[in-house]
């Protein structure tokens, strides 16, 4: 994969464990750069948007680096973006934490809200029901992925060009992953999901084009 060196940018917007995402992507053999520079993020063959912590804080950090515009422009241009955990959540219209609603990027309809389970956070390795035709979950059987969150999206309409993968915790069903055009996202942490997560990241990296010479 030497033609893919200098390929993936991990967006540094003050949220979470960037190192994990960086290392997990680098494990596939591509070159990874961590930066807060929106121009670099916009031009990269692949962009990873991680996210850990509170919804409103992540959105504030994302806005501070021009993240919403970068994500929208990449989607319009068909450039692959992979968003993880709170990075996935902020792609929806809004999030409600502790009764406070914060605007999201709004690529997808829906609100991120507290899950209705007697055991929260939802922490640990859970199964998912991959969308039919999913490329993200290609080659993956019934492996489990690592989740750690208390909030999620309970309703997202499936439509042509949008693949939705679901998971369930304590009787509550929520969106585990979305693939729409070049924008893919996961509620769980592929970078912390061992070899099964590595497979997903490799599937995503395989969609990247070589950078222009």
């Amino acid at each position: 994969m030497s033609d893919l060196r200098g390929t993936v940018v991990v967006l540094d917007y003050g949220s979470g464990n960037l190192r994990s995402a960086e290392r997990a992507v680098a494990r596939t053999g591509v070159d990874v750069v961590v930066t807060a520079d929106p121009e670099v993020a916009l031009a990269a063959p692949g962009l990873v948007v991680p996210g850990v912590g509170a919804y409103a804080a992540c959105m504030a950090g994302l806005r501070a680096v021009g993240g919403p515009d970068v994500i929208a422009a990449r989607q319009a241009a068909g450039l692959p973006t992979l968003a993880i955990c709170v990075g996935h959540q902020v792609l929806f219209e809004a999030g409600i934490e502790h009764g406070v609603e914060a605007d999201g990027v709004g690529v997808w309809p829906g609100v991120v809200e507290r899950l209705q389970s007697e055991r929260l956070p939802h922490m640990g390795w859970n199964t998912v029901a991959p969308a039919a035709g999913s490329r993200l979950f290609g080659g993956v059987g019934d492996e489990r992925f690592y989740f750690v969150h208390s909030y999620g999206v309970r309703a997202l309409a499936e439509k042509p060009g949008r693949l939705v993968t679901w998971a369930e915790h304590g009787g509550d069903r929520f969106v585990a992953a979305v693939e729409e055009g070049a924008l893919w996202s996961t509620q769980f942490h592929p970078e912390k999901s061992g070899d099964a997560g590595a497979r997903l990241i490799a599937n995503w990296v395989a969609t990247l084009s070589s950078p222009a010479a």
């Binding site: 390795w125 080659g139 059987g141 492996e143 061992g194 070899d195 099964a196 590595a198 497979r199």
Partner: peptide, 15 residues
Amino acid sequence: VRRVAASVADRAGRL
């Protein structure tokens, strides 16, 4: 429980 799938491990190792 979570099982480590040897098939996935093998595939990941060949990437």
